[in-house]
Design a protein around this nucleic acid. Structure first.
Lengths: 235, 235
DNA sequence: CGAATCCATTTGTACGACAATATAGTTTTA
DNA sequence: TAAAACTATATTGTCGTACAAATGGATTCG
């Protein structure tokens, strides 16, 4: 339970408001924000709460504030777009196909590489976790159970790659995409269509064959993209 | 000029102190921080400044604070390790070979993929930028000029891939690694050894050959790793 | 012994004050 | 007249205090 949503914390709400404003484009890069006093008045919060929110927004790379000059919106390339909040704001304000395509592309790069690394570096327990997730997928009766086991599988593969940075990155991307897929790809019924792919990935990692693992995962994400294009319609 | 270093801002200093404490391991996940009042006293800052710093640390995923319970250090998997500050703290406190290897591995995954994507999606201007960077590298007389042009080259390739998330991610990784390489790999003299590789990458992107671009970049990073092992000694 | 209640501690929010400082406007000077 | 120095002022940075809200633990009562 991250301290994110549903909390009536004032500064958290202000963070969300400012984040959406900036990411949504109402405030363009280079624009100056109103003075703290004024902005606090507009949002009906104290300057303390506003400042705490602005520090958070600044930590996410969206604004930069200097004395007297005030806070200015930074250029987009400074936005730490791998931040869960920033991704969420992008989804909330401009979930364009291009943006989703970027996320999907990242996923399609990371996962095959992670599978290859996992084949090389996994230990016994990590393999067992992958196997367990696979069996849970095979045994899944409904879509929800399958989705849960599927997420577990991918997470286990990433974990077996023994690269925390990669796991962390994939986590952010997967979470962002998850929210999208829940909304769009509800149609198809054959939710187990990718089970063989998953087995191939598991088997290659078991055999410690990095190229095979990479190829199997590659096929899986390719298939996933094709499937999506049929149901959801992502570029 | 990011608003990071050299500023005597109190809350910024506190952010650094807390970040180093946590990332460095002095405060283990699950540990509770002292109360705000007490901690503010220890650090000789006001509670306001401390709170602003804690919000920033929280935004980076290092801590989570709830009423009465106080702030607790979160598990490492919640740390947003792709954050520049967090990476910096890891370097400052535990620049282990394993950590550097993770960064290098990420780079070796991203760059070939980016080169392939650039071959497919680059436009004329983006190609021109790559060409310009290459020529600057070829013309470079000293190591500093070469390093600058080199960074420009990689940046241009990433930019040509037309994926802002990828650019942003690479930026963070490259910056983090840059700080390390400056310290370690000062030895070798033939700083232009990789110029042919760079040409191959450029040429493949020019010809829009994705597989060729991927392979050329792959060779480049492989060579770079080998070179590093000779001079710096990274696993 | 268990459950409801009260209490103390801690974070969350607000307000007010002053210091530091950078910008803009003003004055002085060459 | 133009440039340089100075001043005024607005804005962020920091501090301190006060109170509200929530929550975990102690206490009391059935």
């Amino acid at each position: 339970m991250p301290p994110d949503a549903s909390q009536p914390n004032v500064h958290r709400q202000v963070v969300d408001q400012l984040g959406r404003l900036i990411v949504g484009g109402s405030l363009a890069p280079g624009d100056a924000l109103p003075s703290e006093e004024l902005l606090a008045g507009q949002l009906v919060v104290s300057r303390s709460a506003l400042r705490e929110a602005m520090k958070v927004i600044g930590a996410k790379g969206l604004i930069e504030s200097r004395q007297k000059t005030g806070a200015r919106v930074r250029e987009r390339r400074f936005w730490h777009q791998l931040d869960a909040d920033v991704l969420g704001w992008r989804f909330a304000t401009m979930p364009t196909q291009a943006f989703i395509a970027e996320l999907v592309e990242m996923r399609e790069i990371i996962e095959p590489a992670a599978a290859a690394a996992a084949a090389k570096k996994r230990d016994r327990d990590q393999l067992a976790a992958i196997a367990a997730a696979y069996q849970a997928m095979a045994a899944a009766g409904d879509r929800d159970a399958w989705a849960k086991a599927d997420a577990e599988f991918h997470s286990a593969v990433l974990n077996a790659a023994n690269n925390e940075l990669m796991s962390s990155l994939f986590n952010v991307i997967a979470t962002a995409l998850h929210g999208f897929f829940l909304l769009s790809a509800r149609a198809s019924d054959d939710f187990k269509y990718s089970l063989p792919h998953h087995f191939n990935v598991y088997d290659a990692i078991r055999k410690r064959s990095a190229p095979q693992a990479r190829m199997a995962m590659q096929k899986m994400v390719d298939d996933s993209r094709r499937h999506l294009q049929h149901t959801g319609g992502v570029a």
